[in-house]
Every structure is written in structure tokens, then in C-alpha cells.
Write a protein that binds this DNA or RNA. Structure first.
Lengths: 254, 254
DNA sequence: ACAACGTATCTACACTGTAGACCTTAGACG
DNA sequence: CGTCTAAGGTCTACAGTGTAGATACGTTGT
């Protein structure tokens, strides 16, 4: 082996008789849809949802689509584009809360919508949080930015300035991300164990150094995502309401 | 260093590691430091800090240490362990605010400390946020949990219940993470441009769909991380203070 | 001296993303 | 009808990845 391939040397006519699939079956066009970008990304998303991020390799994705590996490069010029496409696709699913309610409940619903979406695609969450960091606003696909603009509009309509709205958005989304990271965390170590401390593996922590964390075992055991999210939202909304233009009667401490 | 295919030709001639200018201690080849786990991780961290996460490959890391690739497996049995080790190392640098002040300013300092640490290792932030998700509390290295326990102690000492403290921690850390993701984001697209809209690339967004975001160009341009962080902390602390045991009948703004 | 043992290295392998050349097909145009 | 063009699809090849298994090395205990 190890023949160094001199460029452009051997030109062997290759019959390519590999017929693993009946190509002459032109009467059945069901499998021969022209493979659009949407379809590639949708399949990638399905794959990630089903088997995790590591399962998303180009060869695997190509097999899933019944096409050659290199075909995919037409629809996602490199790996980053593929990941960004998945993010785009998922964010497109996000339903924005409709109008007709006060801004606090709209923010609440917004958060819960996002949470539900994230839980529906847990393996994509890491992408959702980290991919946009590498891309400036102006270069992101508009579908990715629609939730942001919606948020800004919601708050400015409520009376906040655009700058305030942007800052609130950062705090809001930040909290949301953090909540999801916490919620998606694997906490259970020994599922069969009945004692909370043992089930969560907290017994391995030195009692002297982690008394409080260990004492929280029962509370960590009956974690309720919705309740936790609402608690955090209470905090944030209280803070936001405090600087709301309509609450000027109370005065703002410097 | 040209890659060759013929196996076993010019090996065995390497009595001491090639003095390839190891960064830490570039001196006599007799220096046979036994290559502890600390040193491996420290080198990995330095590598990531200098060239980003993608530069961290085992071969590269081995070269950096002047050792064989397989040696590293003794100190980090697989890639995940290597990444977790880096997280551990970075979190070990985090200085926890000392006592002697009210809990609000301690929380504030805590956040700023973390921010400073993250900015010192921007390429590790993604790891910092996402790695722990895969590991249950009980299985994490204690160094990773010390900040958490410290936080819990801080808040319980301030009068909160342990459960409240845990929830506040989630909201707090969540916001902090989100803030960092926002701050580390690449915003500038055309550094030479003088007009904010163009420099941030926001001109590429359809004006009809993104009026507010586009109008924020000047504000996004003079982003100040400390100021932004403090704004978010204001929000959160206002909310937290509102549920503080001592503020039972007093009300929050005053 | 010998054996034992932790450490370090070599070789090999399966798998990854991707470049570049090649083939196939559909339509445009004479 | 035949030919041209271009986009879509495929093949082969290659450099680079993490890692298993066997092998060499260096120190130490007896």
C-alpha cells in the first residue's frame, strides 16, 4: 500500500456498477425528492434529537438521507454551517406570545415557551446557547433574531427605552439559559437507590466541606422545572417592574 | 517532520525530548519533571487560552509537553476528562469574596470576580457553561462545587432558607452565564467602518423586520461589560431583596 | 542480581471532515 | 436531432483525530 498518489496520473474509466439501490426504479419517485436544505437540516435535527450531538457526523447524516457524503456540502458548506442551521431550525419553532396581555405575563409565557422548546430538543440546547456567540448580530439568519426583536418591541411598547429593553433582554435570556442548563443537568447517579442523598450521589461529597449542599438532597430530588422557572421569573420581574416607567411614584433610589 | 507512510524507519533515536522550546521551563534536557496531572492540565489550559478550543488536540498537547501522545492518557483517561480538568483548573482560580460585608455587595463582588475570570479565559467559557451539565453534583470534583457551597452559605447566613438559596443561586448563576455569553459575543463585523450600523453589520438586517435592533447600533457599539453586569445585578438584587426575610413588612424600595 | 511495577513510547486502527476530480442529468438553444 | 452548459450528485483520497494493545524504559525493593 502507501502508494503516493501523484496528482492527475491514473485515469481509469470506472463503470460504477454499484447498485445497492435500484436506480432503474424511476417509477417510484418517493425517495428521489431533490434534497433541499430544509430536508438536510431537518434530518440532522432529528438525528441529534434521537442520538445526541455526537451522532451527527456527515457520513451518518448522508446515510440517513440515502445520499453520498459530499452531497451535503452543497447545503451546508462546513460543519459550523450545519450546526448553525440546526439552531436556526429549532429557533424557528419558537412561538412568540401573542399580544393582548400585559407585558409581565407575556414575558412569562415567552420564557415558558422557550423552556418547552428546549426540553423538546435537549441535545440542541448546548448549541442554542453557544453557537450564536461566534456570530455577530448582522451575520445571523433573521429567523434567529426574530425572538430578540419581538422581545424588544414588547418592552418598548410597555414603556421601556430601547436601551433598557436590550439590557433587560440580556438579563432575561441569561437567566433563562442558566435555568435550562440547570434543569437539563443529570442529577441522578443511582436511580435504584431510595435515599435521596445516595440517589443523587451527594454522599460522595465531604460532609465538612459541603454541609448545605448535602442537606439539599431532598429538595434537589423533587425538582420541578416549571416551579423553579417561575421563581426566577418572580425575582426578575420584581426587579424589572421596579424600574418600569409607570412605577415612578415609588421613586428610584440612586 | 514530513509525514511518511513507511512504518518503523527512523524511530528510536530520541534519547531526550526534543528541546522544542517548551514554554514553561526552557532549559537543560536533564530536566525530567515527572509530568503531573497539574502540569498536563495547565499546559492544556494555556494552549486553549492562546489558540482556542480547536487547538487542543492530544497530539498538539503532547508536542507542547515534549512527550508522547499516549502518555497523556495516564492523566486524562479520555477527552471528556481533559475538558473537565480544564474547567476544574479554571474554577480553582476563582476567588470567593471574603466575609465582612453585607450579602448584596458580596454577591456583587462574586459576580464581578467570575466575570473577570471568564474574560481571562474566554475560550474556556463555553466549557465552563456546558461541561457541568453532563456531570451530576456528586460526581463533580469538589473544586468545582466550592463556589456553589460558598454561595449557599453566604445566603443562608444572610437569612434565606437553603432552598431559597439554591433557587437564587440558579437565577444568579444563570444570569451571570447569560451575561458572559452576551459579552463574549463578537459584535463587530467591519472594524474599519466608522458608522456604527455598518461596523456591527446591522445594515444587513431588513429594516422593516428589525427596526429596534437596528436603532440600537450606537448603544451596542459602546457596550460596557461592567456597567451591563451591574445593571442586571440591580435587577436581580432588587428581586432577591424583595423576598429577603428581613424585608418582611418594610417593602423593597426605600 | 532479579523481579516487579509504574511510567513512557510505538504501532495500528477506525473514524472524522473535506478537497478535487469525476459522472449524471435536465434543460437551453441551434 | 445533436450539442452545450451548469447544477447536482458521486467517488477516491488524504490529513488529522481519539484511542486500544503491545512494547520498551527506569526506578525501586528484596
Amino acid at each position: 500500500m502507501t502508494t503516493k498518489s501523484t496528482p492527475g496520473s491514473d485515469t481509469t474509466a470506472r463503470p460504477s456498477g454499484q447498485a445497492d439501490r435500484s436506480t432503474d426504479d424511476a417509477a417510484a419517485p418517493t425517495e428521489r425528492v431533490p434534497l433541499t436544505r430544509q430536508r438536510v437540516l431537518a434530518t440532522a435535527l432529528r438525528l441529534v434529537d434521537a442520538e445526541g450531538l455526537d451522532a451527527l457526523t456527515r457520513r451518518r447524516l448522508a446515510r440517513e438521507l440515502g445520499r453520498d457524503v459530499m452531497t451535503l456540502y452543497r447545503y451546508a458548506p462546513d460543519q459550523a454551517a450545519l450546526l448553525d442551521g440546526i439552531v436556526e431550525l429549532v429557533l424557528d419553532e419558537l412561538e412568540l406570545p401573542d399580544e393582548g396581555q400585559d407585558w409581565q405575563t407575556r414575558l412569562r409565557r415567552s420564557a415558558h415557551n422557550f423552556r418547552r422548546l428546549a426540553l423538546a430538543h435537549p441535545h440542541v440546547v448546548n448549541l442554542l446557547l453557544t453557537r450564536p456567540v461566534a456570530t455577530a448580530f448582522g451575520l445571523r439568519p433573521p429567523a434567529t433574531l426574530r425572538p430578540l426583536e419581538h422581545f424588544l418591541e414588547l418592552l418598548t411598547t410597555a414603556g421601556f427605552s430601547a436601551v433598557e429593553a436590550m439590557r433587560i433582554h440580556r438579563a432575561f435570556v441569561g437567566f433563562l439559559y442558566g435555568h435550562l442548563l440547570a434543569e437539563l443537568q443529570d442529577t441522578v447517579v443511582n436511580p435504584d437507590e431510595t435515599e435521596d442523598l445516595l440517589r443523587l450521589g451527594l454522599h460522595q461529597l465531604p460532609p465538612r466541606q459541603f454541609p448545605i449542599l448535602r442537606s439539599l438532597a431532598p429538595d434537589l430530588a423533587d425538582y420541578d422545572g416549571v416551579r423553579e422557572l417561575d421563581f426566577g421569573l418572580d425575582l426578575l420581574l420584581a426587579g424589572i417592574t421596579a424600574i418600569h416607567p409607570d412605577s415612578t411614584s415609588e421613586g428610584k433610589a440612586g
